[in-house]
Design a protein around this nucleic acid. Sequence first.
DNA 1: TTTATCAATGCAACAATGTTGCATTTAAAT
DNA 2: ATTTAAATGCAACATTGTTGCATTGATAAA
Lengths: 128, 128
Amino acid sequence: MQIRNTKSKDEVLRILSQSDYALSHTEIENQCAVAFDRVTLYRILTGFEQQGVVHKIVGNDGKARYATCKNECTDHEHHKDNHLHFGCNDCGKMYCFDNKTIELKMPKGFKAQQFNYAVFGTCPDCNQ
Amino acid sequence: MQIRNTKSKDEVLRILSQSDYALSHTEIENQCAVAFDRVTLYRILTGFEQQGVVHKIVGNDGKARYATCKNECTDHEHHKDNHLHFGCNDCGKMYCFDNKTIELKMPKGFKAQQFNYAVFGTCPDCNQ
DNA sequence: TTTATCAATGCAACAATGTTGCATTTAAAT
DNA sequence: ATTTAAATGCAACATTGTTGCATTGATAAA
């Protein structure tokens, strides 16, 4: 399967790479200069995730958020996004702590493929 | 607000405490001997979570799962469920690794309240 | 035991999130 | 310019979770 460049994808990537925190579908839609279908965004993000361009983090609210991968992926090891995230219960922002990686040995027989490390609470902006 | 004992709650607690992994709403409903409304289950689980009886863990699929709290909560510190979870991408089971707790200092200004630590991959049963 | 209180439940209606199928458009190779 | 199939738009749907309100029922008090 080949990959083609489109305006939609460029726009989504621009928004994600310019953001300093992970964005939900809705947040991305609201920032889009170009208009395109909701389903398209789902497919673009799923594609980016599989290519290792972005990583997904799911919050306590069950909603997915996406951020560009700072730790670049190799061809053999994709989506290894094992750093900590922080979701603010007040403003809803999801922060990436790229330098706080979590390395854990899985118990015998468990093979790790994706990581979803998140802590929730209040962020500095919302602590008064 | 006082808390009353009901058949529904007894049943949910029985199912959760007899399970060796975290259960989704649907999984709980399917195991229920007593029938009750879907909304009631949501309210029961939310209540249990606030009381520190169960903890919630959200997977990559955005769906909530619940398990009884092994590490008992104090009156002052509830819901401190900072252990690792493992979700199997094949069978969908969400395991609690109660002994694998993750202790991390939050960056200055961030106040942690809830934890959602999960790794996804394949479990021993599904590795052939 | 009877009565009063309000937590718990049932039901209807709704919102948000995410998915699938299929026809059409369009990027990019030939 | 032509061809191919990736990407998109649209409709329809499934699932998950929430809210309001009337009713039921657990528990304390009379």
